[in-house]
């Protein structure tokens, strides 16, 4: 290997402490909104706190990433530094996988254990004596206590919007790869075109997802409150949706940087990181499509 590359250690930085304050204030505000809200108190102050926190976060993100971009473009980063970023991003994505694993775990547990037990099957089947008349089905269209948790009337048909969304996302994973290839071959025009295509696909996906939510709430009575089916459905698709939005933002920023002439055929880790993230979001969707919508 090359001897004596430079490893850039930034001397001091104000961004981490700003990020700390930002995150702390945001979270505190968020918690206050929820707590005050549920106690019937005014949430104005809490919303203000939350907004201030969020603004600090936005400022921090631009500032921090801004300085990283600048350092990178000033040529301060060595290939070794690049490897640190790669490890960092890979393990971050792994942590995201585990985050989703918790929700998938909840879904599998409810389906294979809790609901059959409540319905009178298996080892803890005597639980059914507490819920007379409850029968285990999946999708769960009747809840053990339908008064406390009014069940959904119907569930989302996987072969309409979700199928279209699947096609959209898989295609977008494909287009982002094409864009990446274009970048590697120095074909900036092709790169821009395919990246724009990716972003458009993502936006359409988000739009459809929003439509689906509206439908669920207004027509199907499928809500957060409609029992474990609704709970897992919205948490899984909701966090996935949040990640899609994050990914789309990342890709958009990449597009802006590309339009400004950033990245070379060799050095473009930020772009790669965004596309890794995008693939990850796509894979999670495939899991969702199979386990939440179809099965």
């Amino acid at each position: 290997m090359t001897t004596h590359q430079t490893y850039y250690v930034p001397e001091q930085s104000k961004w981490p402490i700003i990020a700390t304050v930002g995150l702390g204030v945001t979270m505190y505000g968020l918690a206050s909104i929820m707590v005050n809200g549920s106690q019937g108190e005014s949430t104005t102050g809490a919303w203000i706190t939350f907004s201030i926190g969020s603004l600090i976060m936005v400022y921090m993100l631009f500032g921090w990433f801004g300085s990283v971009i600048k350092e990178s473009r000033d040529g301060l980063y060595s290939p070794q530094m690049d490897r640190s970023f790669r490890w960092g991003m890979s393990w971050f994505i792994f942590s995201e996988v585990m985050f989703f694993a918790a929700f998938f775990g909840a879904l599998f547990y409810a389906r294979t254990f809790a609901i059959p037990w409540l319905g009178g099957e298996g080892d803890r089947g005597s639980s059914n004596m507490l819920w007379e008349g409850f029968q285990a089905t999946w999708p769960l269209l009747n809840n053990p206590d339908p008064e406390a948790f009014p069940p959904p009337k119907e569930i989302i048909n996987p072969w309409h919007l979700p199928l279209i969304n699947t096609i959209l996302l898989v295609t977008s994973s494909f287009t982002v790869t094409v864009a990446h290839h274009a970048l590697k071959h120095g074909n900036r025009k092709k790169l821009k075109a395919w990246l724009i295509a990716t972003i458009v696909l993502a936006l359409v996906f988000i739009g459809f997802q929003a439509e689906e939510y509206v439908q669920a709430y207004t027509e199907l009575n499928l809500t957060l409150r409609s029992g474990i089916y609704g709970s897992t459905f919205f948490l899984l698709t909701g966090f996935h949706g949040a990640h899609v939005i994050m990914g789309t933002l990342m890709l958009t920023i990449m597009l802006i940087r590309i339009l400004k002439g950033h990245f070379t055929a060799e050095k473009h880790f930020a772009f790669e990181a965004a596309s890794w993230y995008w693939h990850f979001v796509d894979v999670v969707w495939l899991g969702l499509f199979v386990f939440v919508y179809i099965l």
Partner: peptide, 30 residues
Amino acid sequence: VMPVLAGVVTMMLMDINFGTSFFNAAGGGD
């Protein structure tokens, strides 16, 4: 495992503030 902890407290948050039933048998949770 830290993300799994984050996941479980998130489910709690939803149960407390948004009416989900991950941990409530009345809605099919446990």
